[in-house]
Amino acid sequence: MKRFIRQLFIFLFTIALIGCGKQADNGKGAQGDGSKKKSRGLIGATCMNIANPFFKVIEENMRDEAAKHGYDLIYLGCEMDISKQQKQIQDFLAKGVVAVAVNPKDSKAIGTSVKECNNANVPVFSFDVRVQAPDAKVVSHVGTDNFQGGELAGEAMIKALGEAGGKVVVIDFRAAESCIERVKGFKKVIDAYNAERESGKIEIAAELSGEGLRDKGFKAAEDALQQVPDMRGIFAINDPSGLGAVGALEKAGKLEQVTVIAFDGMPAGKQAIKDGKIYADPVQHPDKIGRECIRAIVSHLSGEEVPANVNIPASLYTKETADKDTSLN
């Protein structure tokens, strides 16, 4: 009898589980009921990591925008597994999506999946990270305008250093195209500023690699302090390396002397701005990235010409912004 009860338990568990699957499906159906009548089709989107709040914001805005135009959306994360992302795209094609939006985990390895979509004549759009594989056709890329973000950082640096000018150090990450763009934008503004004046120029005294990581940023800033002891500013291409630099400056007791500007506006970066450790951050706008990506898809399906690059401008996040930011303490 005891044995029978256990067997019954397992049997019911199985049934319940299958039931769960069904219920989840019904839930989805009910949700789509409003638009069901005139649903124009399904858009399949996959991002590199659903656990990252950045991609969660993109999802919410994509979902909202897709519903507005009468489309259904499936949004999956591949948890940093490129092979999983490939499978998700294959399943999108089997399901019969009208368009694929991809945030490649790996710009190169995603190539085979994009080509598969090309062969199936399903248009592909990329967001946040570009596809960089030969022969893989993407209709449009929607992402932050990193060059413009770099310009913002340059302007902020000019403002922070004032008339005196001085030496600054760039902590970069040359393996990422987006970070190279940020430095280019930064340099452009600084060069233009220097061209107009005789004294108080801003000199980029050193460019060191922080690999976009906190510990490497720390080390790069320590090295920079040796090379350029009289530096007045640091531009780090993202928040982790910027926070690393802050750590090194605190350790050397030079945080007062050096203005740090980073990039991204991650919560920890924003907090550092509020605490006065980082001067300012150009921040990305995932909400706009999500919306513009769906708009690009809808425009394309409407037979309109879509630009190959949809640049979402970054905006500057300063202490003033941080003081009003209720998400910080």
């Binding site: 589980l17 699957g21 989840a24 499936i74 499978k87 399901k95």
Partner: peptide, 27 residues
């Protein structure tokens, strides 16, 4: 594959897959 076709989100997929493995092992 079935969960992808049913448009279940990534979080739900993780839970269901884990539970199915558990049930299979129980059986």
């Amino acid at each position: 594959n079935g969960m992808n076709l049913l448009l279940l989100g990534s979080e739900t997929q993780m839970i269901v897959l884990g539970l199915v493995i558990l049930v299979a092992i129980l059986i």
